[in-house]
């Protein structure tokens, strides 16, 4: 089977996110870059599905040239091919991103055949638009389920488990299909040295994206006002137990 995984390069923030002085971007001077945990799981799942059912997998991203790093990381984990839709400048909105992905999927499918399953992260770590997978699925006329934490492919069909508040719902989709997955789907592997060396040499295909005006334009980013409360130190080690038990009583738990 043929799989496509879509990822997004995002900064890997530590404990605090700092903004550029004009508030237009996250200050990434001291940050590394990564993809969302949801997308790491999507990559891992694609590698496992190809190992189990044969076929090939492709990882795709829309982003700056530096986003090749994220594609190579996925290849190091076991993905076969990488495709970059190169763009520079301010972030595109979800509608524009989905349009560019649909165009690229049509190009890739015309060359190498249909993707049986397309995996997305449920939402990106930074923008959190919660819609790109559904837009792409709809444009391509394929069924889609979001919030997926379990995937099982059988003959011509995929069973998806969607996490809901009180458990799971199970959905059976005919292939080709689309799933927006969540962390917890699997435990992603660390790429082995051999994979990393191969990924370094891998050829990344570039497909030029066409930008359409999406409609949603960022004006600025702001950090919410912190209500800075002084931390009261209750004590050290075992000696603090009675003070914490007092808090448990205070909030009515004891």
């Amino acid at each position: 089977m043929r799989l496509l995984v879509c990822v997004k390069r995002v900064p890997a923030p530590g404990a605090k996110i700092t903004l550029t002085p004009d508030g237009s971007e996250v200050d990434t001077t001291h940050l590394g870059f990564t993809v969302s945990p949801h997308e790491e799981c999507a990559v891992e799942e694609a590698v496992r599905l190809v190992a189990a059912h044969g076929g090939s997998s492709t990882v795709l991203t829309l982003g700056p040239l530096a986003a090749e790093d994220q594609l190579r990381n996925a290849i190091a984990m076991g993905i076969d091919h990488g495709t970059l839709l190169p763009m520079e400048g301010p972030e595109w909105d979800a509608r524009a991103v989905a349009g560019a992905i649909v165009d690229a999927v049509r190009v890739l499918e015309e060359d190498d055949g249909r993707f049986d399953l397309m995996l997305f992260g449920n939402e990106s770590a930074d923008a959190g638009n919660h819609q790109v997978a559904v837009r792409v699925a709809h444009a391509l006329g394929r069924p889609v389920v979001d919030g997926v934490k379990g995937i099982e492919v059988t003959d011509g069909e995929v069973a998806l488990r969607r996490a809901v508040a009180d458990g799971h719902t199970v959905h059976h989709l005919p292939l080709p299909a689309v799933a927006a997955v969540k962390e917890g789907l699997n435990l992603p592997r660390y790429p082995a040295m051999r994979g990393r060396l191969m990924a370094k040499k891998a050829t990344i295909r570039h497909v030029e994206p066409r930008h359409r005006e999406g409609g949603l334009r960022r004006l600025r980013l702001r950090a919410p006002e912190q209500q800075r409360t002084e931390t009261t130190v209750l004590g050290t080690g075992a000696a603090a137990a009675p003070a914490v038990a007092d808090i448990l009583e205070e909030v009515g738990l004891l």
Binding site: I17, A125, D126, G128, R217, L221, R222, A223
Partner: peptide, 15 residues
């Protein structure tokens, strides 16, 4: 909300 709620984004919507 962005980043799960640790940042706000002010945006303009044309639709």
């Amino acid at each position: 909300l962005r980043w799960g709620g640790v940042l706000y984004e002010d945006a303009h919507l044309d639709a």
